[in-house]
Design a protein around this nucleic acid. Structure first.
Lengths: 233, 233
DNA sequence: ATTACTAGGTTGCGAGTAG
DNA sequence: TCTACTCGCAACCTAGTAA
């Protein structure tokens, strides 16, 4: 499963971007016949800086460089290929979704969501951006937030803006259109809904909420502690 | 199909690495409660620099930052998420292999390979690194080198070193263990072989060679212009 | 045409420290 | 404790130009 590494990442070379650029041009295994002015123009820096940086990359054994009065030939060195691949795999862990559906328990929850849903400033945005008027009451779900992040990767993130009243400030929300169904239940209807996550959700917090235009507890005949299944819309 | 973009890439922010780091920590959608010293320690730069860089990222609207005397809360802004995703997709084009086998025509070729195979300096390395003594003669293949790069991604790159004689210099080679079979032929034997590409192959050149420990033309009953199929070993 | 050296200006870095 | 300002020093950048 894709997951977020807990180890600290150190970037020994700040040149990953340049390596990525060169790789786009040469491919991973081949030689690119070019000159420093072309690269300078692409990257928006001076010819002189390109010359210097390429020499630095060569000294760091990240690229193989062959300079002459007719230009430079550049290819990736093994080290450069490996460094770039490492960087790619790090990003792949963040960006590759391999969770197609979420199964999670309904927590009894205090229905904090119900309180928020009662504010027209939120309601208005839900109608406008999600296309339905939410039932005043939410399902609170106990989740592993890292799994949720992974699951949501291919979803469309809809931003619900926060607002202020005289009494207090209400934070922004992120909403994702989803479908919800009950698990282990003869009733396997799928109901359109939205997964809601406050902008301020901490990366190790573990509760998200589901809203819909109807009472999901009734419609899906849900009991407390029952599991539901969520898929992307 | 994954392919190498021909458009110039400009990096508006040199901060992709830092964004990638932060994303590892916070996830794509959540808030990370930390402090500048922790990040400084992770990245090997000073607390002061982290403070400055985070403010820069905030000004560039790449992250959302909330600093106080008890630390900083950091999350990705939409722009930051998009910038990072763009960078990821660029790398994915380079690194994600979606070509499982290569079909290519045998060119009549002048058997340049045969000449090279006759040098013990190469032969010795083939025996040692590939595990077989190459038949003195190669198949020349007409290919799209970008496709070959993609195909070879999951292969193991074996470097064959170049050498010098009194007369001339012989360049290094890259070798990949593969299996070769004839296409459109009752004989569908798969024979162990190696795909060979000179280190100096230009990114738009279009010939690679195949070597094996036997005469592939005979063993696979190949005619000129016939297609063969190559898979990774 | 190229690459790349030199010189001088600019930006970035971090120790000290204020708030 | 934190963040983040000041400022001296180092690293980086590019215009001019040599090779």
């Amino acid at each position: 499963m894709a997951q977020i590494s807990e180890t600290a990442i150190r970037f020994p070379e700040e040149d990953i971007n340049l390596l990525a650029y060169l790789t786009q041009k040469s491919g991973l295994f081949n030689v690119w016949n070019t000159n420093t002015s072309i690269i300078a123009n692409d990257l928006g820096i001076s010819q002189q800086s390109v010359s210097r940086v390429l020499r630095e990359l060569e000294n760091a054994k990240l690229i193989i460089r062959e300079a002459s009065t007719s230009g430079v030939k550049i290819s990736l060195a093994d080290n450069g290929r490996n460094a770039l691949k490492k960087h790619y795999e790090l990003l792949r862990n963040v960006f590759s979704s391999d969770i197609k559906s979420l199964s999670c328990k309904i927590t009894s929850g205090l229905g904090e969501g119900r309180y928020y849903m009662s504010f027209s400033q939120y309601k208005k945005q839900f109608i406008e951006k999600l296309g339905f008027e939410p039932f005043e009451g939410t399902l609170n779900l106990e989740v592993d937030i890292a799994k949720v992040n992974n699951f949501l990767l291919n979803g469309v993130c809809i931003n619900i803006n926060g607002f202020e009243t005289k009494e207090r400030t209400f934070g922004g929300l992120k909403a994702f259109n989803v479908k919800v169904s009950a698990k282990n239940n003869k009733n396997n209807k799928k109901i359109n809904a939205a997964l809601i996550m406050p902008d301020r959700t901490h990366h190790d917090k573990n509760v998200v909420e589901i809203i819909a235009n109807k009472n999901l507890r009734n419609k899906l005949k849900l009991k407390d502690n029952q599991e539901i299944e969520i898929t992307l819309d």
